[in-house]
């Protein structure tokens, strides 16, 4: 994954959709005064049907749904922001859409530093910790010497 200075729109929307509210919303609130905007689509909670593949690689099947909240808004300058988040948090979806819209303005550099970089570090840190705990449970086989040789 590219770093926060180079992450593209697909990258930042994916990062924000998965960010825990407890991490993202305080960073967002710390941005201070935010611009006015118009709702293109007010926040709504819905579901997405998650698909798997039979045998991991074969034809798709429906695994079950997950909750998702989405919204879209427009800044006075015309920039459109879309917010998709896992779960049912309308404040989080709105915050993602605002970040997405502001990333298309000259606020982008500041957002990369103040929002995207810490969220990327948080996600990488959580994944790394779990991977390190998993690695500690990896079995190291050894064979007992058996007198036949």
């Amino acid at each position: 994954m590219p770093d926060a200075a180079h992450i593209d729109r697909r990258g930042w929307l994916s990062l924000l959709a998965k960010a825990p509210d407890a991490e993202f919303l305080p960073l967002f609130d710390a941005l201070g005064t935010l611009p006015d905007f118009d709702w293109l689509r007010a926040p709504e909670v819905g579901s997405v049907m998650v698909q798997g593949r039979m045998g991991a690689t074969g034809a798709p099947f429906n695994l079950g749904e997950m909750t998702v909240t989405r919204c879209s808004l427009q800044l006075p300058g015309g920039q459109v922001g879309h917010g998709y988040v896992q779960g049912r948090s309308k404040p989080a979806a709105k915050a993602v859409a605002l970040v997405d819209a502001l990333m298309q303005t000259d606020a982008a550099a500041r957002l990369r530093a103040d929002i995207l970089a810490p969220l990327m570090a948080g996600a990488a840190g959580r994944a790394e910790t779990r991977a390190r705990k998993a690695a500690a449970t990896k079995v190291e086989f050894f064979t007992m010497a058996r007198g036949e040789d």
Binding site: E44, V45, G46, S47, V48, M49, V50, Q51, G52, R53, A56, T57, P60, N62, L63, E65, T67, V68, R70, A127, R130, A131, K133, A134, T137
Partner: peptide, 20 residues
Amino acid sequence: TLPRFGSSKPVETGAMRCER
């Protein structure tokens, strides 16, 4: 009661961050 926004792409379990 939830509106369905759509379907995901099939999840890639080969890319799973395995804990077990």
